[in-house]
Design a protein around this nucleic acid. Structure first.
Ligand SMILES: [Zn+2]
Ligand SMILES: [Zn+2]
Ligand SMILES: [Zn+2]
Ligand SMILES: [Zn+2]
Lengths: 135, 135
DNA sequence: CGCCTACTGATAGTCATTCTCAAACTCAGC
DNA sequence: GCTGAGTTTGAGAATGACTATCAGTAGGCG
């Protein structure tokens, strides 16, 4: 049976308080800096649980997993600013249907899909134009 | 200046001979088993070169990078069997346009996107139905 | 042929993530 | 409020993919 511990709750809250996607390590650092004594392994476990339970979304970037508290129970994708991490949830039935139909056309079953859009948000675009980004 | 070595050529050929996406480690094993004395680091370097030069596509799964020789110069996405690795290249202008427009709607610029569909190919679906998969 | 320099590869190092297991904790049952 | 069985935790070790090192090798141009 799944038990409720202050550690799990702390991870959930820290994730809720985060603007965009964060790594397990970053979240652990953040928790430590706020005085928590939570262990790194526990953060990894809690995030994996949240993701598998549908309470958080995850994506992989540069070989590391990033997590974000997302609207529970709804399937959606993300538009992410690669500079500041600002994230917008996006829904697109057209893409869902396209994914399923292209899989079906080729005889594939149990189709899952990974769809993410990365760019520069309006604010970061302005900064880039002003030459304030080194990217 | 970029030099031509038998190692780079061997990696390119091994990649061409592969059906679907393969990891650097797998490709290295395959080369070794065919008698090549190529080093692992060289395989990583050659694959990175091929990918940055547009002669190969890459994607990340379970924290490891997979590579595949793909139609050069054409932007496309993939439909991948998660059991046997069979890969189909797919093009979808609708998705390209959707990605750009959704980014523009939210004020994002320089939008890139990651779009991949994973499933079970017809053959593996049949095997799964016969209970031959442990997945 | 001979030099310059890029390339190679065995190995050590890095780093995110997972494993281990004894100790701490949760909670149903009393 | 206690108890005890079973779950969770966490510090450190282990894993595994990938990168850095650097002496030795070998393209390629003259
Ligand atoms: Zn931004
Ligand atoms: Zn979707
Ligand atoms: Zn298959
Ligand atoms: Zn595309």
């Amino acid at each position: 049976m799944k038990r409720n511990t202050w550690q799990r709750e702390a991870v959930r809250e820290a994730l809720d308080a985060s603007e965009g996607f964060v790594s397990a390590q970053t979240l652990h650092d953040r928790l430590k800096h706020t005085g928590s004594q939570i262990g790194l392994a526990t953060v990894y476990r809690a995030l994996a649980d949240l993701a598998s339970g549908g309470d958080a979304d995850s994506l992989q970037q540069d070989g590391e997993s990033l997590y974000r508290a997302c609207t529970p129970g709804s399937h959606h994708h993300h538009l992410i600013c690669r500079n500041c991490g600002l994230t917008v949830e996006i829904e697109a039935d057209a893409v869902e249907q396209w994914a399923h139909s292209v899989a079906a056309e080729h005889g594939f079953t149990e189709a899952h899909h990974v769809v993410d859009v990365f760019g520069l948000c309006a604010a970061c675009t302005a900064k880039a134009a002003a030459g304030e980004l080194r990217d």
